[in-house]
Amino acid sequence: MAQVKMTVNGKAASGEVEGRTLLSSFLRDSLFLTGTHVGCDTSQCGACVVHVDGVAVKSCTMLAAEAEGAEVSTIEGQAAPDGTLNTIQQAFQDHHGLQCGFCTPGMVMTTAALLKDNPKPSEQEIREHLEGNICRCTGYHNIIKAILAASGQDVSALAAE
């Protein structure tokens, strides 16, 4: 066991980890930040996406020890301290961008990374960026709508399906 220290959602966090402890396991089991979901545990589904030093990664396919000293952001850090949803989360709610909600933490974190680099993505760019995020309710259409809305773009052109 080794000590690992990182900053998670702006707060110092530390704990004992084994070499094999995944970042997703550390966040969920040691820090009790269970908003980061583990869907497939094989880096296919993207439910576990968090940001490490500003970029989106699949936390089930990164060792906790690799995040030593890193700035980590999870879904728990997205809303304001009083619980007010951020723009992306609110857009997901407004446009019914979630059904069961299991994939949503990863979708929101992936969206946050996209909009940071590309504030006004096209529908095609959004779809390509979500390649590694799977929604088994298959609610993709409203997720695209929510992301267009979160980026301040008109969603009426996106036909209802």
Binding site: S43, A56, V57, M62, H129, G132
Partner: peptide, 9 residues
């Protein structure tokens, strides 16, 4: 290659 999160690692 892969998807955006995979490309970041």
């Amino acid at each position: 290659i892969g998807d955006p999160a995979v490309r970041n690692r």
